[in-house]
């Protein structure tokens, strides 16, 4: 076996996986702490990718910079959606299924909105550095992958620090560990839920741009991304930021290696066989929730 190829595909896998992680963290967080399975999570990511596409092609703004536009915009949109669509739902005793149906509807609306604005053609984020590579010894790294990797690392660190170091982040964790006690000590549950949902959707926006740096996309692509989201949650454990990060990396490395050594049609088979094995032996995920 060619060792250079092994390492090369592992590095590629890590870079892909880091972006899966960023895309998946918010999904996992909202599922774990709010019991909302946000089917539209990836669709918001895709919307951010299309926004980057337009900003790049109309004004020449770099995709990484365009996050400064899409993240705050989607944060606000998510807060409004939480306030008027999801908050009324939280009065129900069990909100997992209703929330899935509701957010499935939101995903369909977003998908058709994107079809309307950007048409069904596949798109690529083609920047000046798209075809550039860094060569280190026997290894080469494509610029867009490096950009996606750095973006993902920054995103994961920011979310982690927010939850661990800021008062609002601590209130998010407190509210989901012990709902009553958090309220008794002054945490406004509706406010904190809104922040959590907004934060998750913003991270999806950053993750979506990261995905767009690696792969081509069209308005239906979020359905495929959604499968990776479920993978991240199942491997990483529901509600865990670090778990999601490690899960993303694990999935990335497995995909990267299998892409290099297996015929293409076997890649997904292997990934999902692995998923089934994890579900059988570690149904709670490989990592523990620390939120």
């Amino acid at each position: 076996m060619n060792l250079t190829l092994v390492f090369q595909s592992m590095f590629s896998g890590i870079m892909m996986g880091s972006v899966f992680a960023l895309l998946g963290i918010g999904f996992s967080l909202v599922w774990g702490v709010m019991k909302v399975i946000n089917i539209s999570h990836a669709a918001f990511g895709l919307l951010a990718a299309f926004m980057s596409y337009t900003l790049l092609n109309v004004w020449g703004i770099d995709p990484i910079l365009s996050i400064a536009v899409s993240v705050p915009l989607l944060f606000l949109a998510a807060c409004v959606i939480y306030r008027f669509l999801i908050a009324p739902l939280t009065k129900a005793r069990d909100i997992i299924v209703p929330s899935m149906i509701l957010t499935f509807g939101i995903a369909i609306i977003l998908e058709n909105l994107m079809l309307l604005i950007w048409s069904p053609d596949p798109r690529l984020l083609t920047t000046a550095y798209t075809s550039k590579v860094v060569i280190l010894g026997p290894f080469y790294f494509q610029y867009p992958r490096i950009a996606g990797f750095l973006l993902a690392c920054a995103g994961v660190v920011v979310i982690h620090m927010f939850l661990k170091k800021t008062y609002t982040g601590k209130a998010v964790r407190a509210a989901w560990q012990q709902r009553d006690a958090a309220q008794l000590y002054g945490v406004n549950l509706r406010w904190i839920s809104m922040i959590t949902f907004g934060l998750a959707v913003s991270s999806a926006a950053a993750g979506g741009v990261g995905m767009a740096l690696l792969y081509s996309f069209e308005p239906h692509t979020h359905n495929l991304w959604l499968i990776y989201l479920f993978l991240v949650v199942i491997v990483g454990g529901v509600g865990s930021v670090l778990g999601a990060a490690l899960a993303g990396l694990t999935i990335g490395i497995i995909t990267g290696l299998s892409m290099a050594f297996l015929p293409y049609q076997w890649v997904n088979l292997l990934t999902f066989a692995l998923l089934m094995i994890i579900l059988i032996f570690r149904p709670q995920g490989l990592f523990q929730s620390e939120v």
């Binding site: 964790r173 008794l184 939120v291």
Partner: peptide, 17 residues
């Protein structure tokens, strides 16, 4: 009803939220 996965220090901070 403490916050079980937070440290004692963080529990106290949440008291003074």
């Amino acid at each position: 009803k403490l916050f079980p996965k937070m440290t004692v220090e963080e529990n106290l901070e949440m008291g003074a939220y």
